[in-house]
Design a protein around this nucleic acid. Structure first.
Lengths: 172, 172
DNA sequence: ACCGTCATGTAATCGGTTACATGATTCT
DNA sequence: AGAATCATGTAACCGATTACATGACGGT
């Protein structure tokens, strides 16, 4: 009920997915993450339990409990939650995201380009294929956000493949 | 002294910088981070105090204390620390790094491409210029790691600029 | 009926961030 | 000398990960 929560990216993902699917248990959310944002932003499923509870306490989610059986908790957006999401969405991100690419860090620290490159090339190529497979499913339906984000991922993968390949080639 | 620590990327950065500069206080490390890896991997300076202590307790760093004045702590690699760094460096990264780009996440969640794009274009262009300025300082000296990593950053920035610009153009 | 696997959840731990605090140094 | 800023460090808090645990279900 307290009016102030720190809206982390995780919070926004929970809010955004709940807007999309209406009502969900933490486990449902886990499934939804896996097939959507999970492709470029993951976390442990345990966090969905704590995060929903946190947002619920802050009044952004409504929580109802099943009567029988597992007594699972179902969550949905409150008006306040919807508003918080809208505000988060409207606010542009001013900073550039940090790469935080472990392979690049190893490269920086003197790791062998050949060894790193081989592993990274394979991994990035697999990821790119995964993205292509998803793109095939696009029916042109609204909302477009996820598909545009997917394009960004595809271009990024292509870029990283170019980078690592060039590095592999320049190493004799 | 215990033989097992979890080597986080932060740990590797501390170890790697200590290898480079020999001996340093946490504050020296903060400075070193700022001019090197800090361009694509940052953290709060407070963490350097806890991290050095953690690594020291694990036997990877040697800690000596100034006698007079501030009694500052100086750290340097132990043989064990050097070995841990070597092993970390030799082990290739098998996963692809997640983007975790807040702007892309907002895009995914329905944020306005025009609003997001404007802010991101400016930010990425500034970052690219920053990278160019650094690249000018390259004297061709060893080690090459940091410079190769810089190239990756430059290509990434160019990629993101292309992406956001294309998006801005396609929005009427 | 049993076994393995998936579904679902909680608790403990830990790394990272925020906030605060004090000593040194420079500028006016 | 006083104010402002930089240097240096600690403590508290919080979000995220790891580890663990139990219930349900499909296959043999």
């Amino acid at each position: 009920m307290s009016t102030d929560v720190n809206l982390t990216p995780t919070s926004a993902i929970v809010l955004g997915l709940l807007e999309l699917i209406g009502e969900a248990t933490p486990y449902d959310l886990k499934q939804a993450v896996g097939t959507t944002v999970g492709h470029f932003w993951t976390f442990q499923h345990a966090q969905l339990y704590t995060e929903t509870e946190r947002l619920s306490k802050a009044g952004l989610l409504k929580e109802t409990r099943e009567d029988g059986g597992r007594r699972r908790k179902h969550y949905s957006l409150t008006a306040k939650g919807r508003q918080a999401l809208d505000e988060w969405r409207a606010e542009p991100a001013t900073d550039v995201a940090e790469l935080r690419d472990l392979a690049v860090l190893k490269l920086f620290m003197g790791g062998d380009p050949k060894v790193l490159g081989e592993a990274q090339l394979a991994a990035h190529e697999a990821k790119l294929q995964e993205y292509y497979a998803i793109r095939k499913l696009d029916q042109g339906l609204e909302p477009r956000g996820p598909w545009v984000a997917l394009e960004s991922g595809i271009e990024h993968e292509k870029q990283m493949i170019r980078f690592w390949r060039r590095l592999a080639d320049s190493a004799a």
